[in-house]
Write a protein that binds this DNA or RNA. Structure first.
Lengths: 147, 147
DNA sequence: CACAGTTTGCAACCCAGTTGCACGGAATCC
DNA sequence: GGATTCCGTGCAACTGGGTTGCAAACTGTG
């Protein structure tokens, strides 16, 4: 998918957010990334913007359900653009993620839906985090060869 | 399940760990807890032991596969006693966890196994973290009444 | 008892995430 | 158009969980 600044701008507006320069940059970075990004990854990606500003933009985007967070198994949380039908409270596009313990990247397995379970009586489900961990194709391959 | 100090001691020994006072306390706390505990929860539970000591005990227990960690969706990681057949590299007892966004506690749904998926070509699976989030029976009930 | 190795508590450190604050630019109101 | 308010931003400082360094206490072995 190709994203230019203009598209990010309208995306923001369609969610009722004023499209400032920083916000567009953050959305663009997220949109162009194939993988969910951590705060620090975003910081590195957009050096022109201060860490705290990136943080505040992300918080804002979360409030307006334009991004959601997932926990990579590693250190912190990662942010992912909601690609679902816009503006919904809950994201329909929940899918399985894969965390590579070698290169510490998180992949979206977009076409694998999260298998559901039957919760015991009384529990109210909000959302599910399904994180598979191991080695991504590239790292698994590398290892194989180095042995 | 009832756990006294003696049992914890033998549990440690059976894993090849010298059973010191602190270690027994930590294992006991974990064993008695119905839920996986965070480092800080353990700190509060065992006030007599220093934070860093708890931390070191936990690291040790992890090395010897007596406890494993899971990510609650919240702030950090939680520690859970491995109840699987002892000493295995990988825990057979992986089950679904439920994180209550109200009271921030993590529950083990011990009798719900993690549903498996078919990973795309090339990915090497190590383990899976299945975390359902929402409200636990108690909190869901509370909310219901307050409305 | 002396000695080497291990375990522990304390204090200091680290660092990602977060907040306070004051400047600067945009929107709003005479 | 110019004053005023509001909002977004960068900087610096703070926070708190996790981690490490170090020296004291403790263990056990000859």
């Amino acid at each position: 998918m190709k994203y230019d600044s203009k598209m990010c701008e309208t995306l923001l507006e369609s969610h009722g957010i004023k499209p400032t320069a920083n916000r567009i940059l953050v959305v663009k970075a997220l949109a162009e990334s194939l993988r969910p990004m951590s705060l620090s990854e975003l910081e590195c990606e957009i050096l022109s913007v201060d860490k705290s500003s990136v943080f505040r933009v992300l918080t804002l985007l979360r409030e307006y359900h334009l991004v959601h967070v997932i926990e990579d198994g590693g250190d912190g949380v990662r942010y992912e653009l909601c690609r679902s039908t816009d503006g919904h409270e809950h994201d329909d596009d929940q899918h399985v993620h894969f965390y590579c313990e070698e290169c510490h990247r998180t992949f979206c397995l977009t076409d694998i839906p999260i298998p559901t379970i039957n919760l015991p009586e009384g529990y109210v489900l909000e959302n599910i985090n399904y994180m598979a961990k191991g080695r991504c194709p590239k790292c698994a391959h590398k290892k194989e060869n180095s042995w």
